[in-house]
Each structure stands twice: as structure tokens, then as C-alpha cells.
Design a protein around this nucleic acid. Structure first.
Lengths: 221, 221
DNA sequence: GCTAGCTTGAACCCATGAGTTCAAATATCT
DNA sequence: AGATATTTGAACTCATGGGTTCAAGCTAGC
């Protein structure tokens, strides 16, 4: 039964924990779960091996916690990218600036920029990779990640459809397809994240996605 | 210096080799590269462990060959699914049956059915997973796989655009986006291949993709 | 300055699994 | 049938790596 932690001591521990989780994600990204060894993670975190086991009981829980942390920060960034689609308050205000295509373009470019990140690719890869060994990652990472992004986007689209700024349709499908139009070509062009794209190429990809999306979901002529 | 193989002996060897590669893909799918052990692969193939090393020198080459074989058969299946988009010969014949939407729907449904397969998901997962450890998989699997599918599809689209059956646009982009509209929502709905979808759901997904695609790329009104 | 808990490094235990060796069995070709 | 090549099972080697232990060193709080 340890005594209640004093703030300072607790903060020291917390910092170490974060350092370990960050290092873990880095090493797992580099080597995959199977090939990554805890010793290397400890070294990357600048910490002794027993310290790692002191904070995280297992290699498995270490992996889970690292993935959860990475997913959480990725989700926050993605949700922030949706900002331009938020109507301020009244309804007909200048929320989307009266210009839906422009707002969509800003969102698309920002999302693509996020998803082209090395960390984003690492997260996707590890999720794909260890899904069979860690089925619970689907809920941890995806449930609090991609799914919530889709729902938030669908919410925005629903408002725009109701306001006649987009054609009336199933907003969930529209959101799904919008994200697909962004991420699919990104995966193809960037060779699954192994090739770095220039910003201009990313923007062109985003613009192409928005153009196709608006042809399909723009307001009825 | 082994003598030239007589057909019968060669066939026996070839059969064993295929059995080993199939078993390898099965086990790798189930466990991932790191966690899969060669002993288990040998057992799955109904073969002794030294036999495996007799045919494939390494665990690594075993993996590469198994992936290449799986990718090749997946590609063949995908290309076959594009059949309905082939104009027979003359130009204005009944190749697409005069009905582009119907042909696209058939292609979309068939492609989606293929991509929802357990083997297709396993291939995608393993590719994602071990890409950092086996960078050459990109050329082996992807170069002879997804990329060629995209190119073949772009070829079909180019013909249709030229014939005025689709709006004139960059056929490569159209192909990329068509595939994205299929695979993106599939990934979302099937929870990255962990949830099995009913055929009706798959068809609905395909139809939604085709509808959006045609709104964006259908012939100008 | 003293106590308590955290950290450290190094050594250690132990399971797993890649890859090999070898003699016996088996199938194939001539 | 006889020569040749392959397969088999079992034992073996060896490196790797997860996880633990322990004594010594730090740091924070009293």
C-alpha cells in the first residue's frame, strides 16, 4: 500500500511514463511488435529495463498503452482539422465563409497533411499488423479514432445538407466516401507511406478529392 | 550440379513447394511474420521441417515467396473482375452492353466481393505489417498487384471517356478514386476485415460507390 | 540527516524458435 | 533391380529476448 503521491513525485513518474510510451511507439513503429525488444525501448526512453516493467507490466500492455496514446493524439489532431466546417452559431453566418468548397478544401488539405505524417502511417501499419494478435485494438484505436472522425464529419455534412449547401443524402455515407477519396489515393501515391510527397502533391490530391466529392454531393444545380 | 529434372519428379517437387507456400501464407496470416514459427508451417503443409528448408532457404525468403504467390493469384482474380468493362471489338458493340452503369456495378460488386475475402485482408495486413522489415514487398506485391489493377482500370476508363460514355477527365485519377470509393468504406464497415459482411451489405456498398462515381464522372448531362 | 520508494545496471533464468545434422525410409528414373 | 535424390523425424546448437532478482545509488519528503 503506497502512500498518496505528492504532486512533484507524481509528475516525475508521469514524465517517465510518457517517455516510455513515446519510446515504445517509436520502436514498435520501426520494428513491429514481434521484432521490437523491450531492452531497445528502455534505451530509447533513456531508462533501465526494470523501470519499464515497473510502469507497464507486460510487453503486451506496453504495446496497448503506447497505441492508445498515439491514437488519442492522432484523433485530437484530426478533429481539430474539421474546424473550418463549423458554422459559428446563427445558421446563415459566415461560418463556412459562405463558401463550402473553400472550407472543404481547407479541411481536406489539413487532413491529408495529418494522414501523411510518419506517425500516422506507423499507427495505421501497426493497427493493421497486430489486429489479429490484439483484437481489442479495434476498440481502443479505431473506436476512439477513425470512427469518431467519421461521425464528426457526418455531423458537419448533415448540417450543410439541411441548409441546402450540399445535396441531401446519407451524411454517414458522404463522410465515409469523403475520407475514402482522401486516404485511398494518398495510400496509392505515397506507396503506403514509404514515399514522401511534396506539399504541392498532397494539396493536388486533396483538391482532386474535393472536386470529385462536390460533383457528387454539391447542391443540385 | 543436379541433373535436369524429369517432368514427373519436377511435378512432385512443385506440388510440395506449393503446399509449403500455401501453408506459409496461412500461418503468416494467422500469426504475423514475427510470431509464426517454421515448425508450424511445416506441420500445416504436412511436411517435415527440413523439407521446408530444402525448398526455401530462409524464413525470410519463405515469407517473400508466399507473399508473392498470394499477390499473384489475387491480382489475377482482380483483373478478371474487370471483364465487364471490356468492349468486344468494333467500338459501338454491345461490350458494356450499352449500359455503363450496369457494367460498373457488376465490376464494383465483384471487386468488393474479392477484397472482402479473408485472404485479401490477410494480404493487406501482412503487407502493411512487414513493410518496414521487407521494403521489397512493395515492388513484389504492390507493383504486380494494386498498381496494375489501377492501370488496367484506367485503361478501361480512358476508352469510355473517349467514347463519351464517361466525362472526359484524367483516367488515372478516376481509377484511383473508383477503387478508393470501394475499398475505403469496405474497410470502415468491415472493421478492417474482422467483421464479416453479408452479401447484401457488400452490394449496397458497391452500389453506393458506383452512384457517387457516376455523379462525378458520368457523361455530361 | 533520515527514511522510503524509485531507479539503475548487471547478472541471471528460462522458453522459444531458427537453422542444422544424420541415419533411416521412401519414392523416382533407368 | 539398382542408383539417385528427396523426405522424414528426431535430436541438437545457438542466439535472442521476455521477465526477474538484487544490491547499490538517487530523490523527495519529514
Amino acid at each position: 500500500m503506497t502512500t498518496v503521491r505528492t504532486p512533484a513525485a507524481a509528475r516525475g513518474r508521469i514524465d517517465k511514463r510518457r517517455a516510455i510510451l513515446d519510446a515504445a511507439f517509436t520502436v514498435f513503429s520501426r520494428a513491429g511488435y514481434g521484432q521490437a525488444c523491450v531492452k531497445e525501448i528502455a534505451a530509447e526512453a533513456g531508462v533501465a529495463k526494470p523501470t519499464v516493467y515497473n510502469h507497464l507490466t507486460d510487453k503486451a500492455t506496453l504495446f496497448r498503452e503506447a497505441m492508445a496514446a498515439a491514437a488519442e493524439s492522432a484523433l485530437a489532431a484530426d478533429l481539430a482539422a474539421l474546424e473550418p466546417l463549423h458554422e459559428p452559431v446563427g445558421g446563415t453566418g459566415d461560418g463556412v465563409g459562405g463558401d463550402v468548397p473553400a472550407a472543404l478544401t481547407r479541411v481536406a488539405r489539413e487532413l491529408l497533411r495529418r494522414h501523411a505524417t510518419a506517425e500516422a502511417w506507423a499507427l495505421r501499419r501497426l493497427l493493421h499488423a497486430e489486429l489479429t494478435q490484439f483484437p481489442d485494438l479495434l476498440d481502443t484505436v479505431r473506436g476512439d479514432g477513425t470512427r469518431r472522425l467519421g461521425e464528426a464529419l457526418a455531423d458537419r455534412f448533415a448540417r450543410l445538407m439541411l441548409a441546402g449547401r450540399l445535396r441531401a443524402a446519407d451524411p454517414a455515407v458522404a463522410a465515409e466516401q469523403f475520407l475514402a477519396l482522401l486516404d485511398g489515393p494518398l495510400e496509392a501515391r505515397s506507396a503506403m507511406g514509404t514515399r514522401r510527397l511534396r506539399k504541392a502533391d498532397l494539396d493536388a490530391l486533396a483538391d482532386a478529392a474535393v472536386e470529385t466529392f462536390l460533383r457528387a454531393f454539391g447542391p443540385e444545380s
